[in-house]
Simulated scan of single mutants.
Amino acid sequence: MRALVSGGSSGIGASTCLRLAEASLARGEQPMIAVAGHRATPAQEHVVSSIQSMGGTAIALVGNLSDPDVPNQLVAAAVAEFGGLDGLIANAGIASPGALCDVSVEDWDNMFAVNLRGAWLLAKASYAHLKNSRGSACFTSSMSGQQPHAGSGAYSPTKAALTMLAQTLALEWAPDGIRVNVVSPGMTHTPMTEKMYSDPQIKKARESIIPMSKIGEPMDIANVIEFLVSPLSGYVTGQDICVDGGFSKSILSHIPGRPSSNS
C-alpha cells in the first residue's frame, strides 16, 4: 500500500497512517506511507518513526493546503519516493466556529481553500497514479456535513461540499477502476477537541446523548478509512459512512414522551 495521508501528523490522520501500515503488513505487503502535515512537528516525526519501526517505509511531507501549488507538490513527492500511489486519504481540515454572519470573507475563503479546494487538488494530482494502480481514495468529512450545524461557521458548508466532491469523483472515476468514499466522524476525541473533552461535564453530557455512550477515538475512524481503501471494500464506492456511535440516527429518541429502549 503506497498512500498519501494529508493531515497525517496527529489525531485521525496519525491513527490512519498507523492503521494503514498495520493492515498492509498483515496482508504481506510493504506499507509506504507519506505523512503530510501543515508543518514539521515532533508528532509527525513520531508517526514516521512508528511506521518505520514496524518495518514499513514512511516519509514526512510538509505544506499548507491553502497554497494551490502544495497539493501537486505533495503528490509528486510521494510518487517520486514510492514509484506510484495506491491510496489517497484527504484528511486535512480546519475549523473556526462562529455565526455565519460573523465570518469574515478571509476566514470563509481560507476554510474552503483547505477543506475543499485542497482535497480537490490532491485528487486531481493523484488521478493518473490511482488510475494506473486501480487504487482508491477516502475523504474525511464530518457529521456536520450531513446535518446543518449552527455556530460552526463555514465548517459545515465546506464538509457538505467535500462529501459531494468525493461522491462526484466516485462516479467520474469508477470507469477507471478507482473507488472514492467518504468517512464522516461524529464526536471524536482528537487534539483539535482536546480542550472541550478535558471538561468532564461536557464530556459526560455528550456521552449521554450518544447511543453507544462514549466519545469516539481517532482509531475508530481510522479503522473505517482503512476498510474503505482496502481490498475488502472492492465493490464499495460513492458512500458516506458516518462513524458516530449512532448519534446521527438517534434524533427521534430525544423527543420527550416517545418510547425508548430505556423505558
Results as ranks from 00 to 15, higher is better:
40 A>I: 12
145 G>V: 11
6 S>D: 10
198 S>K: 14
81 E>D: 07
251 I>V: 09
100 L>R: 10
121 L>K: 03
19 R>Y: 02
165 L>A: 05
73 Q>F: 02
140 T>E: 05
61 L>P: 13
77 A>T: 14
2 R>M: 03
54 M>S: 05
210 I>Y: 13
186 G>W: 03
56 G>D: 11
83 G>S: 15
135 G>Q: 00
135 G>V: 07
25 L>D: 08
206 R>M: 14
260 S>W: 02
17 C>S: 03
197 Y>K: 08
180 V>A: 05
174 A>Q: 07
128 A>L: 15
125 A>C: 00
79 V>T: 05
15 S>I: 14
237 T>P: 06
41 T>N: 00
152 S>Q: 13
138 C>S: 05
258 R>N: 00
185 P>T: 00
218 P>S: 08
215 I>G: 13
218 P>C: 09
20 L>D: 11
247 F>W: 14
43 A>G: 05
67 D>N: 15
169 L>S: 07
222 A>S: 14
129 H>G: 08
239 Q>V: 15
141 S>G: 06
66 S>F: 14
230 S>D: 12
3 A>V: 02
168 T>R: 15
1 M>I: 04
159 K>M: 03
45 E>N: 02
212 M>H: 00
213 S>M: 13
245 G>E: 12
50 S>Y: 04
33 I>A: 09
34 A>K: 13
64 N>L: 08
138 C>I: 08
108 W>M: 07
137 A>Q: 00
104 S>N: 00
127 Y>F: 08
98 G>P: 03
174 A>M: 10
143 M>K: 05
26 A>N: 02
250 S>A: 15
